[in-house]
Design a protein around this nucleic acid. Structure first.
Lengths: 217, 217
DNA sequence: TAGATTGTTAATCGATTAACAATC
DNA sequence: TAGATTGTTAATCGATTAACAATC
């Protein structure tokens, strides 16, 4: 079997899937503010997206609104969580206990949004055994065993660029299917593995194209 | 990354601009490996992009290759740096000196790619005056003055979500034109301001759609 | 009811790809 | 030269938007 996703799911454009978490984040914000209902136009205004696009995106998955009144915020949140498989907490491993790994392991914003950092790995003997936010730093020697034993599917990769590909290969071999890569390098993985990239420099370099540098230097 | 609409004058699609930093990163990697020339097909293979797309993207800016032999790596790097305005080092401010702000200020991978973290701000009196990687944490009271005095154009926003919009308003009023937002919230800014988003949870929630959770829970 | 807003269709807009003459 | 690869065109593919009947 070449692909995991069934036909019906593959028919939905990936770009649509990518917007759902943004909708979810905005809806959760509205919910916190006490808003009970919203409309595609209100949501679109907040996100800088057309109302038509929001309605079209949602229509791939069902009918979640009511003519005349719009969407019930809490209900739409629940539906989006189901679509994105967020009805359980995904356990996550952090690879690399440098400054960034520390920051990720210390961040408490994951759990309410569907994830929990449960493991952190490093090669540095002086780091191994230390505890960050209740998580004990493990040796990279235990990587494969732990992944297989705990059925870890998702990892945050915060190792130096030179090691990113080799660690990725180990993660994939052990069964990881989703990697958020913080190293500034492109990873090569099998088709069934999902990679997300987080390289701040790439984003900054995108911006500088649009920023006039005349009075900067 | 959500950016302002490209100038009608430039006519170059924003999605093309967004790929240039990725090309640049891959080319720099090749250069480090000692590669002197490459081709659109080799580059495409590495990045999972078609060779036609790479040639088309580059053709918006000029003719950088040679039939039969491809592209001179070092030359193409130089051209891309010019296009993206990376021929000088952009000074950058970090807002927020929590774990993430610390990690950003401590990261030494910015400078060789066109950026230098030069300022870091926080409200916490116990943090102000401390030094991270040679940078003294300043009071948020000095934010506007410093931005205006130093003509700061780019900021990394690493403050709690509840403060992200109000701090953004202050940054924009003071003259900042590019913000990389690490807070899990959508920002509203004027058209001329470029926003990049870095919310790991949004990326993880995108992945989980494709990951089978059957044996996970 | 009258106004508001959905879900959906068709048209428009934009991006990607295949193909190939040019040429190193 | 012969093989390789570019830059570009036209065709294809896909995504966004405008518009509106349905209906709350």
């Amino acid at each position: 079997m070449a692909l995991i996703a069934p036909d019906k799911e593959t028919q939905i454009p990936d770009i649509v899937i990518g917007r759902l978490p943004v909708y979810l984040r905005a809806l959760s914000f509205m919910h916190q503010q006490g808003k009970r209902t919203t409309s595609s136009s209100e949501l679109g205004r907040r996100l800088g997206i057309s109302s038509a696009q929001i309605r079209k995106d949602l229509s791939h998955f069902g009918e979640f609104g009511k003519q005349g009144t719009g969407y019930h915020v809490q209900h739409l949140i629940k539906e989006l969580r189901l679509i994105l498989k967020l009805d359980n907490i995904w356990p996550v491993a952090v690879i690399g206990a440098g400054f960034l790994g520390h920051a990720l392991a210390s961040y408490n914003g994951f759990e309410e949004r569907g994830f929990q950092i449960r493991w952190i790995f490093d090669t540095d003997p002086t780091q191994i055994g230390k505890v960050i936010n209740g998580i004990t730093i493990q040796s990279m020697n235990e990587l494969e065993n732990t992944i297989e034993l705990k059925h870890i599917k998702i990892a945050l990769l915060a190792v130096p660029a030179v090691h990113a590909q080799s660690v990725t290969d180990r993660l994939v071999d052990a069964g990881v299917e989703g990697i958020l890569n913080y190293a500034p390098i492109n990873l090569v993985v099998p088709d069934h593995v999902n990679i997300g990239y987080s390289d701040p420099v790439v984003q900054l370099q995108h911006m500088t194209y649009y920023i006039n540098s005349d009075d900067q230097f």
